[in-house]
Deep mutational scan, measured.
Amino acid sequence: TYTWNTKEEAKQAFKELLKEKRVPSNASWEQAMKMIINDPRYSALAKLSEKKQAFNAYKVQTE
């Protein structure tokens, strides 16, 4: 089980997950979700809006 003390740690864990699963920077949210949804870190960020925000930040960083 994973635990995160801060929102920032949770966001980092979520981005690490995207990186580890090699989600391409041109992937849509739907494509990315299919690649990461079974990992416990997918739940790091509770709100869908937070997940999408972190995903978009990840995409910008990896382009």
Rank of each mutant, 00 (worst) to 15 (best):
S25A: 13
K47L: 13
Q31A: 10
K21D: 01
E50R: 03
E63T: 12
F55S: 01
W29D: 01
Q12Y: 07
W4D: 10
N5W: 09
K34T: 11
N5G: 11
F14H: 00
R41E: 01
K11G: 09
K47G: 10
F14Q: 00
K52L: 12
S49Y: 07
E9H: 04
Y42I: 02
V60M: 13
L17E: 00
N26I: 07
I37L: 10
I37N: 13
F14G: 00
V60K: 14
K47H: 11
F55M: 03
Q12W: 08
L17F: 01
K11V: 15
E16L: 08
S43G: 12
P24E: 04
T62Y: 12
A13V: 10
A10S: 06
E9W: 03
E30I: 11
D39W: 00
E8L: 07
S28Q: 06
A10H: 03
K21F: 10
Q31W: 07
T6K: 03
E30H: 11
F14D: 00
V23C: 04
R41D: 01
S28F: 04
A27N: 04
T62F: 14
V23T: 03
K15T: 15
S28P: 08
P40R: 08
L48T: 10
K59R: 11
N38S: 14
I37R: 11
S25D: 06
L17T: 01
K19H: 14
K21Y: 09
N38Y: 09
S25C: 13
T62E: 14
S25R: 14
R41N: 02
E30R: 13
L17S: 02
W4S: 06
N26L: 06
K59E: 03
D39H: 02
F55R: 02
A57G: 05
M35S: 05
K52G: 02
A32M: 03
K7M: 08
N56H: 13
E9A: 05
D39S: 02
Q53T: 10
T6Q: 04
D39F: 01
A27G: 05
K15Q: 14
D39N: 01
L18G: 00
V60I: 14
A27T: 10
Y42N: 02
L48Q: 09
K51Y: 03
E50T: 04
E63H: 12
V23N: 01
T62L: 14
P40E: 07
I37F: 11
K19L: 14
Y2V: 15
T3Q: 14
I36S: 01
M33E: 08
S25P: 12
W4A: 06
Q61W: 14
I37E: 11
K52V: 12
N5K: 12
E8A: 12
K19E: 14
A13C: 11
K34C: 12
Y2E: 15
Y58G: 02
S25Y: 11
K51V: 03
Q53A: 13
T1D: 15
K51E: 02
A57T: 11
Q31Y: 10
A13S: 07
A46C: 10
K51G: 02
